[in-house]
Nucleic acid binder design. Structure first.
Lengths: 141, 141
DNA sequence: GTATCTGCAAAACATTTGCAATTCT
DNA sequence: AGAATTGCAAATGTTTTGCAGATAC
């Protein structure tokens, strides 16, 4: 039995979730897993368009919506009108560098934050966004 | 010397910031101070339109942009495409009730959260959003 | 009377919807 | 064939831009 490749893993993940693994879906999920860059619809579209010239932006919207419904992907809104997408792993915070624009994951352990209730309000979900200058950009000055 | 009314206060605040107090600007700032409801552009527009029938949505956009530049107002993006506006007071977190849709302020003291640095990245600003069921909605069940 | 400010109309984007063509089984 | 999927074109919704007329100092 041969070793399971990353591509196989992703394909099996889709099948396990009951989503048939079309090329568009496979490539979108591969993109999310390999870049881990919290992309916008356009970022995914521009990248995959090179491999799939007939690709439509509508399809990216369709695929992402399907992934969100299946719990594979999470929609995040960090700033303004740009909706971004994130593969679903354990909950984490985000750091956006205002200099280079990159968005980094910050494990929750590092922010010591796990409230279930505040001021009498029941908390289901917490989103934490940090804005500032990232390690790399600090180095360059 | 007569007592300064809330309207005067708001007018003087604008003047102090070097913003001439047009009716549209005064009413917009009054709206933000009296409702404290983190409104969208449309919410402000619909409300002020009643008092100022000639009002244009463009003007609300202009006014808010001016306020943001002057540091009077902060733009927040909680979910999806809805950009919301908040008068600038001391930093605080937000709680959005997924049942009634209301957004509440949560003082930072209550979340014990004031990081200046994380994982080597310099933090300038932190945004915290809680989602869940608010006190009032919990009571009704 | 010159600067600023307002608001209309059009443009620019992002996202959604309806539907016909394509693909998969 | 029948069901699901893709992708085009048009619709919708939000924000921005250009500009002419109104207003303020």
């Amino acid at each position: 039995m041969r070793k399971e490749t990353k591509k196989d893993e992703i394909k099996n993940l889709l099948i396990k979730k009951g989503i048939s693994p079309s090329v568009q879906r496979l490539k979108t999920l591969e993109y999310l897993y390999s870049y881990r860059n919290h992309p916008s619809v356009d970022m995914i579209y521009d990248s995959l368009k090179k491999e799939i010239p007939t690709l439509s932006k509508t399809t990216i919207y369709n695929v992402l919506k399907r992934f969100i419904d299946a719990g594979l992907v999470k929609e995040i809104t960090i700033e303004g009108n740009e909706v971004r997408f994130d593969i679903f792993i354990e909950p984490h915070a985000h750091f956006k560098c205002t200099n280079c624009g990159n968005i980094f994951d910050i494990p929750y352990e590092n922010v010591a934050f796990d409230l279930k209730e505040i001021n009498g309000n029941k908390i289901d979900k917490t989103e934490i966004f940090f804005f500032g200058t990232c390690k790399n950009c600090l180095k360059e000055n």
